[in-house]
């Protein structure tokens, strides 16, 4: 993929203190980046490679320097650009919830909890599928990762009002799409297929 549009953002000061290199960031945040990519709808088969791509971009950028948002939101901003580039490359052929992700997702302790988490992820991905990536990212970071609007705005380089606007739009679309799924009916449709793979 072309990474010029990714790398050209936010060139960092190579001499700054407090810098975290790509490997340090990977150790601390690789699982977060993988989860973020999965939640915004990246097909499971592509998550591993996109995580690698994200941290290679981080390496090329010289690591994280305090000031460009928090490390997690900064990484999410890079992951979003990497995911968007990947989508442009492969086209938008997979906008449905990813059943590979359903089968692979979750670190829940028990089989029942694990299944519920998979179904919840599926429903969330379906409800987010109608949103563009920027709105999905704002929604996931704010609603699921508990990031503040200020941190999101800083990392994505947009005014905080834009974050509020994206959140408002995303929540409205998400809630409406979620209601249209039919709650438990949606789960019932998916459950047999999930059980086949477990």
């Amino acid at each position: 993929m072309k990474d010029g549009d990714v790398v050209s953002h936010e060139r960092q000061d190579a001499g700054a203190e407090g810098r975290l290199d790509a490997q340090a960031l990977f150790r601390a945040h690789a699982v977060f980046v993988a989860s973020f990519l999965q939640r915004i709808g990246t097909p499971a088969a592509e998550v591993d490679d996109l995580v690698q791509e994200v941290f290679l971009v981080v390496h090329r950028k010289g690591g994280y320097v305090p000031g460009a948002g928090r490390p997690r939101t900064w990484l999410a901003a890079i992951a979003l650009r990497v995911a968007r580039s990947g989508r442009r490359t492969r086209g938008r052929r997979r906008e449905q919830p990813d059943e590979d992700a359903l089968l692979a997702a979750s670190s829940s302790a028990t089989p029942d909890a694990e299944l519920e988490a998979r179904l919840a992820l599926s429903r969330m991905q379906q409800a987010l599928a109608g949103l563009d990536l920027e709105h999905r990212a704002a929604f996931v970071l704010y609603e699921l990762d508990g990031e503040s609007c200020e941190a999101i705005a800083s990392a994505f380089g947009v005014p905080i009002g834009t974050v509020y606007s994206r959140l408002h739009h995303a929540r409205r679309r998400f809630s409406s799409a979620y209601a249209a799924l039919g709650g438990e009916d949606g789960a019932s449709r998916l459950r047999p297929r999930l059980l086949e793979g477990t």
Binding site: F32, V51, S106, S107
Partner: peptide, 30 residues
Amino acid sequence: ASELRADLERVAASAAPYDAGAGLLALQSA
């Protein structure tokens, strides 16, 4: 909706099953 909130809680509490050890080796190689 309570179902929606429950789903969000479940997703927020779970993480992608990413193999960080293998990923780190791959990153170091790259």
